[in-house]
Nucleic acid binder design. Structure first.
Lengths: 331, 331
DNA sequence: ATCAAATATGGAATCGATTCCCTATTTTAG
DNA sequence: CTAAAATAGGGAATCGATTCCATATTTGAT
């Protein structure tokens, strides 16, 4: 492995000069620059990141904390981040909490010890403890996916859950559906549990539609729970004409139930979900849903973090992301 | 940020002693060890990785090169690796080629400059160039997913494509299916294109079953190509009673075609695939397929790499991975 | 009791870069 | 033509660890 010293000797200058060429800093004559450049070219020399980091306290590495790598959400978000970071010469150091919420804090610390330049956290919770830890961090942190508690100044990228949900409801109502059931998740999940449901309720109210007693059910994200929720809705009232599931997977559960009951989609009952999963696309009939652009979330998060690192002045603290209505055949 | 010097001062010993405690090396008295430990505990001191790496030439970072992060294969494999590496204090530096084969070599170089301890490559091709680059690498490289050209000594973890395919064929034949069509991919892909098809042909021969003229079709992994391939099979001969698709997604394409043709699955025609994708599970009827344990592949690859790094003697050069037949309702 | 081996600790060099501070040369202004 | 400013480049300290070597103290065998 060659070092800056070797290059200096070969080019007939001092290490200082080589360093200046490398970093484009200070005064330097064209002649020296060329000599150094030539030698670097010839030797294929690459400076040691460690030595550099030791002095500059910069690593060009971004730590990323995920709940689990192998999910659509995570992997697509990382794809997006990678795009932006790759361009700027940053690389991604991955850590996964494996769905263990406790570990989010632990990993936050671990990455700081690695002296990463910044951290992106795909949060699953927004506990006080976590927020506290983020606030204490000397390394900038950007949160993607969950709105961090109220007044905090932690930069975050979030999806427009309320808007997406509202838009889906408008579509259903526009298409003549009136008796709409809802399958949600529990309210500890702010994004999915609270906002999406609120939009459903608000839309029903706005259009003076009554909500039947059994029409609002709760699942746990799984397909099976969607099936059960659908069962509860229909066993309570046979004449519901549409099911709005807060996630695609629960929507797929509803599909299964309706199929079993020999109710045809969308003639008898419409079903819509949120997420635009692959399965939602290839199920029959294809499900109408909302697509979140996770790649875009990743890109945006990465850009915000870079802006912070570059000391940019007006970095947006919260960024609300767009969604896309995907109209298919289930309504 | 505290340094080893601070700790030494606080504990009333030299930096050398602190370092010895940190690394469990050399002689040290219980008393000194305790003093140092206490101070470390109190201060929450963590050694700088950069300084350490600069001296030891070890980074405790593994570079991982993927074709694309957001695929089932990649993300599950990374999940598996992460499990093993995490335990041993290694972290993962991710890079993605975004399906650009050329970039595999470029990233291989990039990671070496980062001075990672080892590299895991989820290869999409096994060109001469690539093999050459791997061979030149001073950093150990483990390849997952593709068998690297013949005689090479490059450690790799591969799936038993022939075995999986053969086992699926046996199941079909055991269940009385005789006129089996095949949807594959082109032979530039060794694992999927060549081995799986060979197993199909061998099984048919072994059981003295004839292969109709239009029964072997080629797709490009996409669902649509599966649809088209199925169309070509059935337009050629109406009485095929089973379709063996080399991948789930092409199998799903076949599902679509059969549904359109009002042929019921499995009464009229059986369909099987390989991959155990989520969609294969929730399509109706659920598809019989083969599950590859990508997590296991990741774990195994990680273990092999660690063995190499630890100078273990007999590291297996090739490791063939198991598969699991997932019997469902499509046959 | 004596001497070698084992144990314990510290000083200082080292890894490969950056950067502060200094000196020398060239350019520019008055 | 001279003094100040701009340009160019080098010496050496520095970042925070590890590790070689030297020295001091204990232990154990004879």
């Amino acid at each position: 492995m060659r070092t800056i010293k070797d290059i200096a000797k070969l080019a007939g200058v001092s290490r200082t000069t080589v360093s200046r060429v490398l970093n484009n800093s200070g005064y330097i004559s064209e002649k020296s620059r060329k000599k150094v450049m030539d030698v670097i070219e010839e030797t294929g020399y690459v400076p040691s990141q460690h030595a550099k980091s030791l002095r500059t306290k910069q690593t060009k590495i971004i730590g990323v904390i995920l709940p689990k790598i192998s999910t659509d959400t995570s992997s697509r978000t990382v794809d997006g981040m990678n795009e932006v970071f790759g361009e700027k010469g940053y690389q991604i150091l991955l850590t996964s909490t494996n769905l263990d919420k406790e570990k989010e804090i632990e990993h936050l610390r671990l990455l700081q010890n690695r002296q990463v330049d910044g951290i992106i956290l795909l949060a699953t919770n927004t506990d006080e403890d976590l927020v506290e830890e983020i606030r204490k961090s000397k390394v900038p942190v950007v949160v993607i996916g969950q709105e961090v508690a109220g007044d905090s100044e932690i930069p975050s990228v979030i999806f427009d859950d309320y808007g997406a949900s509202a838009s889906l409801m408008e579509t259903l109502i526009d298409n003549g559906y009136r008796k709409i059931g809802y399958i949600g998740v529990e309210s500890s999940d702010r994004a999915v549990g609270v906002l999406r449901k609120q939009a459903y309720i608000d839309a029903m109210e706005k259009h003076n539609l009554e909500i039947g007693e059994t029409w609002i059910q709760t699942g746990d994200f799984s397909i099976d729970s969607g099936y059960e929720a659908a069962r509860r809705i229909f066993e309570g009232s046979r004449n519901v004409d549409a099911v709005f599931a807060a996630t695609d997977r629960m929507g797929i559960g509803a599909f299964k139930y309706l199929r079993k009951e020999r109710l045809s989609i969308p003639e008898d009952v419409a079903v819509v979900g949120i997420g635009s999963s692959e399965t939602s696309r290839f199920i029959d009939p294809a499900m109408t849903t909302v697509e979140y652009e996770f790649e875009e979330a990743g890109r945006t998060g990465a850009e915000i973090l870079l802006d912070i690192l570059n000391g940019e002045a007006n970095v947006p603290v919260k960024k609300l992301l767009d969604f896309k209505l995907v109209s298919r055949d289930s309504l």
